[in-house]
Design a binder for these strands. Sequence first.
DNA 1: ATCGCAATTATACATATGTATAGACAATAG
DNA 2: CTATTGTCTATACATATGTATAATTGCGAT
Lengths: 237, 237
Amino acid sequence: MLFKKDQPYTANNNMADPAEQDLSRARAPQGRRAVISQEDLISAALALVGPHRSVSTLSLREVAREAGIAPNSFYRHFRDVDELAVTLIEEAGSALRKIIGGARTRAISGKSVVRGSIESFMEQLTADQRFLHLLMREGTVGSEAFKQAVERQLVFFEEELCTDLVRLSKVNNRPLYQPALVAKAITRLIFAQGASIMDLPKDELPKAAEQMVVMVRMILLGAQSMSDQATTENESN
Amino acid sequence: MLFKKDQPYTANNNMADPAEQDLSRARAPQGRRAVISQEDLISAALALVGPHRSVSTLSLREVAREAGIAPNSFYRHFRDVDELAVTLIEEAGSALRKIIGGARTRAISGKSVVRGSIESFMEQLTADQRFLHLLMREGTVGSEAFKQAVERQLVFFEEELCTDLVRLSKVNNRPLYQPALVAKAITRLIFAQGASIMDLPKDELPKAAEQMVVMVRMILLGAQSMSDQATTENESN
DNA sequence: ATCGCAATTATACATATGTATAGACAATAG
DNA sequence: CTATTGTCTATACATATGTATAATTGCGAT
């Protein structure tokens, strides 16, 4: 079909619900009220990233389509898709840290902290909210700003893990060698492993989780015995 | 510029070098001789992936342009870019395994096996041949076939590492708990760490390498003491 | 020479993208 | 009411992509 003009947007006239007038907004300043918010665009993007779609490949038009707005309206909310992607990563990161950090501090009855945390991680792997996928899948592609955003979130994870590790090591009187390094190793390992198993069939996940538990134990045990060595070396001086 | 016809390829007439006739080829069957090979396309693709370009985002036309052929000629050599990407990964993987596996078996004078291997890894990080970048950067994006190709290479790494670990543990009489798991943990950790530091300025790499060494030692030490535990438990039965 | 055949190219088409421009729409302010 | 002012849409354009089709090119066989 030659000379086809660009497909217009043709808004769905499914507005009409007057209850949508959010009067709790501080003060409507002027002009037409926004029909869509940054959050709407974010969840549209979130809906598009599946097991086979990565944030860094989303196009502006695609997100706009999913959100039900005209392509150009996108610019009212973000300067470009990259900016969207970055805030997406940040939201996903903070949501996840809340969940997994919570699992780490909450003492689950009868389970070790390690196992509890990893199970919480695995739950997120199959959760409907694909936060984890976002962070795991694309640490290494996309724009510089995007990669840095992912890296930042991972560092946050590491830092929180580190303070928890230090706390626990004091409680158990089992000192850790270089806890910051331990936290980094565990975080990177778990995320890398997670990325490689996230497309596995569900029934293979428990085995993978078990492997993760062992791996983390190895790191912790190693760091403990390195601490022992360092101590005895000091004592022998 | 409306109605511009698609830019033609307009071959560079810089052939003319008759020495290019590779008479060592087994037997020219019939028809025009191929002016380009799969290898040429692969190295064209390799030239395109830099620190800010990932294989999975290469387009057919782009690779063809770089290789100096018309877009359609691409199809004579690969069914699509994905197929190119997969063989690219496979070549990079086998080249790398040769390099790093070599460093692991070759006993470097006065250096531990761990440190030697990691230094060899870091060398590849800054090598002109960007093999490592390929494998590290894109384990998690791209087509299913592509991801599986990357995963396959990582598993190869793990397996080779594993046999080396077993061998060394016997030599040193220091048994390892679940060496296959140890190999997997080390491999994934190193690649994940590598991906996150590959864009760092060169002078920060030694510190990162040092951290990697410690991380790997933690895993090894942990696996050794887990083996101790398992042994004493058995003895106490 | 000329015929056939494989490698390669030229042209074209449908489709997708980002974005510029201008106008329509809806709300508030006067 | 009208004016103003943000939000949103329609249209358009330049550009890029994958690929279908047909033509061209260069080589060996006849």
